[in-house]
Design a protein around this nucleic acid. Structure first.
Lengths: 195, 195
DNA sequence: AACCGGGGTGTACGTATGTACAGGTGCGGT
DNA sequence: ACCGCACCTGTACATACGTACACCCCGGTT
């Protein structure tokens, strides 16, 4: 059952499992996604990563260390995903539509990513050591959105994206794509002054 | 030491303390503000409210009930504060400046209100029963901001406010008022197309 | 071939938590 | 005057948690 690394001779390679630490951190992410930050325990993580309990306390001296590394991984993944999304965009496409698709994706199929990102984000409010990681996520949003528009609009869109995504993940039922599109269009193009 | 209610004869009025339940809920808010949702325990709340431990379990059968009522109170308070802020505004004043002041206040002196609001907001992501309360907060923002502009701009500003406030509470050091003002101005007035 | 060193693990312990519940206390009915 | 009852509280218990640490095991060294 235990998915341990095996060397070519079939003997358990107890030593040198450099992926172990990252496996545990990623398991922590899924635990947070399912149970929230309160549910993050050494035992839950050990079960999710399929490693013994002692392994989690060996690789991470304290739970906060584990939380910090999990946040770092989650933020890195999300920053990478946003950059990949941006580089895959048509160079002249309608940006409001693209951002709407992005939000809808994070509310729908990728909802768990959204939940864990905000969980860890808010956890940083009580743990100053985690704030730089959260700030990096913000800065990446500003940079990516600003590259497609201009620096100031990038800051507007980063804040709007952050708030709108959280509100959309909360709303039941979630807002329609059309409603979100209207908001982004208004934010990018400005008020429609047509009389 | 215990601040119990006393009747006019000086005997402890054990019966009928209708404020008790609310006192406990408000104590829960301050506990969440200081220690986060993970730190919300019957004992911590009892100590903060200066009531015996049994009192918290008597008035709230489960911790989630307590969390729900605390979120409701916090949201009500914040909604009331926003409405009061709006009704105290000059009718023709610059709205971007007013919103900037609002954000700066919630990042500075009222930072604890902000922290607890987001803590409880995010807690609702894992507790569907709490989502209507969070949604009410969102709707109030849309309504208040929309009344000073227009419905669509109200939705933009509500999302932007939510995201920007969270980012500002996270940032260290917090962004300058000027930076926030620029963002709100850009969001309200649209892009400056002057060549 | 013997040994040694360090990474990895299972267990045990002290502590904090949620919750149940028996008992106490004063008010309202008779 | 008496009593039942509903409200309230302090305590006790089972459980789950973080953490420490004694042991194990294998690869490299001599």
């Amino acid at each position: 059952m235990r998915e341990a690394p095996w060397d070519t001779a079939g003997r358990p390679a107890v030593r040198a499992d450099p992926s172990r630490r990252e496996r545990i951190a990623r398991a922590a992410i899924s635990v947070v996604a399912e149970r929230g930050v309160d549910g993050l325990t050494h035992r839950a993580v050990a079960a999710a990563a399929d490693v013994p309990l002692g392994s989690t306390t060996y690789h991470f001296q304290t739970l906060d260390d584990l939380l910090e590394e999990a946040l770092r991984h989650a933020a890195d993944d999300n920053i990478g995903a946003i950059r990949a999304w941006e580089s895959g965009l048509a160079p002249d496409g309608a940006f409001a539509e693209a951002m709407t698709d992005l939000v809808m994706g994070y509310v729908g199929e990728n909802r768990s990513h959204t939940v864990v990102e905000y969980d860890l984000y808010i956890a940083a409010l009580h743990r100053p050591a985690l704030r730089p990681v959260s700030a990096a996520w913000d800065n990446a949003l500003v940079e990516v959105f600003g590259r497609r528009t201009d620096p100031l609009t990038g800051r507007v869109l980063a804040g709007l994206f952050c708030g709108l995504l959280m509100q959309s993940a909360m709303a039941d039922p979630p807002p329609s794509a059309e409603a979100i599109r209207e908001v982004f269009r208004r934010a990018i193009e400005g008020p429609h002054t047509a009389a």
